[in-house]
Design a protein around this nucleic acid. Structure first.
Lengths: 134, 134
DNA sequence: CAGGATCCAAATAGATACTG
DNA sequence: CAGTATCTATTTGGATCCTG
């Protein structure tokens, strides 16, 4: 309940190797992964990396997503401070979503992953074929 | 011992921006995220980044994981060619896990994420407090 | 248009108990 | 030690209907 105003900003835990034995960072990672690891968050963040989009644009852009999941995912991203939601009180209603500065910083590691996926995706596919049987 | 596969190098699909409209890479991403996005894979890969570990070592190192989930996750990582499993026919049995060359390449984007998490974890925590109510 | 509310199916995860 | 086999609880996602 205490809205503690600790000297915030970029005074993190210090850079460190990924170390699952480090329970603090480990917990944070679990948390992050729960967000970006879900089925849609990365797609949406990636799409918003191209600029502001409204709800229906996202729905069309992110192939296969249901209305419900788009709403839920956007709410979570908003809650985590990665996305801002702006409502224009018009008729018909218009709602726009864009990345926050924090959200934009996430774009970088996500791009790294995206690159990895595009480079090694076929390696994985081959590994699976090998594993699943000759 | 296990230097069987050369890192297959970089002959990818060409570098590209994250673009959820690109259905090919998009599908690959979904796939990758399904692997590294689950609750345990990243922890395990991170831990194996420090070197070969046996089953019980991993179980102790990755806090909170159940035997079942460790087995399942390791099998998936093995299937995807990210981890090699070596059984030593001794009594009592000994099984060791280590990253493949492909698995090691994954360490890099994972580290990027880990860094991001350690830097911005508190930002997210604060954003949530703000969102959830004062 | 941008959702909220429901209901239901499927995927995931945890807790045992048992085994070579 | 390193699993497998079950059974159950929780999470998640999709489909559908409704509204300002």
């Amino acid at each position: 309940m205490v809205t503690q105003a600790q000297p915030l900003a970029t005074k993190p835990l210090a850079k460190r190797e990924p170390d699952p034995a480090d329970h603090t960072t480990c917990a944070v990672m679990s948390d992050i992964l729960n967000r970006i690891g879900d089925k849609w968050s990365v797609m949406i963040v990636g799409r918003l990396g191209h600029g502001t989009k409204r709800f229906s644009e996202l729905k069309r852009a992110v192939e296969g997503i249901s209305q419900r999941m788009l709403t839920l995912t956007l709410r979570n991203l908003e809650r985590d401070g990665l996305v801002v939601r702006t409502v224009y009180p018009e008729i018909p209603p218009r709602v726009e979503y864009k990345l926050t500065p924090l959200g934009e910083t996430l774009l970088e590691p996500i791009n790294a992953l995206w690159d990895w996926a595009s480079v090694h995706g076929e390696d994985i596919a081959r590994a699976r074929e090998r594993y699943d049987g000759p």
